[in-house]
């Protein structure tokens, strides 16, 4: 004859409805005459229902953007090549709308900065440089060109060549919680090697500083390229 401990071992399978019918009937017969086991079995059923009805949480608004940024970092680390990083997954339906909104603002902002509309694929930003020259200079400096690079290039008028002052990945300089305005200021300008540019609040000041920089009299102007 089974004791209560033996019956307790069957509780789980009983509440899951996976216990064989004969053993279920045996257990039911026992609980009909054992108040302690009946109470314990009822409690297990109740808790199982409670656990199943615990509220489900949803991902935060920033989940997809953070995921995307982390994935980009991962891709960059492993040197994975896609035809375009813009083709990376968007992760959720919810991400699409804000992503397009952010992209739209980015395009407007960059458009204002560069006086051009950003299109996918390599583009020559308004200026006098040959795109191929910039590309070649960047290849020499960076070893590779990834989609999403922003390049600050200058013309060395004496040697008649393009000098890459700096190149950055747009995503790398885009902390997720900051505004786009903040994203494109400071970080791009902080690595140009030129003085007083770290805090430059606008492209005009930066350009002005470049033009008036006595240490680099050969610099005529600077252009930014988006790859």
């Amino acid at each position: 004859m089974k004791n209560c401990t033996s019956y307790k071992k069957l509780f789980s399978e009983y509440v899951d409805k996976t216990l064989e019918p004969a053993r279920s009937r045996d257990l039911e017969a026992h609980t009909a005459s054992c108040a302690a086991c009946k109470s314990s079995l009822d409690a297990m059923l109740s808790i199982k229902r409670s656990l199943a009805s615990l509220p489900k949480i949803g991902a935060s608004d920033s989940f997809d953007a953070v995921m995307r940024a982390r994935l980009r970092q991962q891709i960059r680390r492993e040197g994975y090549r896609t035809r375009s990083l813009w083709r990376l997954p968007s992760f959720s339906l919810n991400f699409k709308a804000p992503a397009y909104a952010v992209l739209a603002v980015l395009l407007i902002f960059l458009g204002a900065m560069l006086q051009k509309t950003y299109n996918s694929g390599p583009q020559v930003v308004k200026g006098n440089y040959q795109f191929s020259q910039v590309q070649q200079a960047l290849l020499q400096k960076a070893g590779a060109i990834d989609p999403g690079y922003m390049v600050i290039a200058q013309r060395d008028s004496v040697n008649n060549r393009i000098v890459i002052i700096n190149y950055v990945d747009i995503d790398e300089i885009a902390p997720l919680d900051d505004s786009l305005q903040k994203r494109t200021q400071g970080l791009i300008y902080s690595k140009t090697g030129l003085p007083n540019l770290r805090e430059a609040p606008s492209r005009q000041i930066r350009t002005s500083a470049l033009q008036s920089n006595p240490a680099e009299p050969r610099i005529q102007y600077a252009k930014e390229y988006i790859f």
Partner: peptide, 22 residues
């Protein structure tokens, strides 16, 4: 199976003072 059973009994013991379900 045995671990699920024991886990439920342990949880039951911890929750014996509240009246579930939610």
């Amino acid at each position: 199976k045995s671990r699920v059973n024991r886990a439920r009994l342990k949880l039951q013991s911890k929750l014996k003072d509240i009246d579930t379900p939610m």
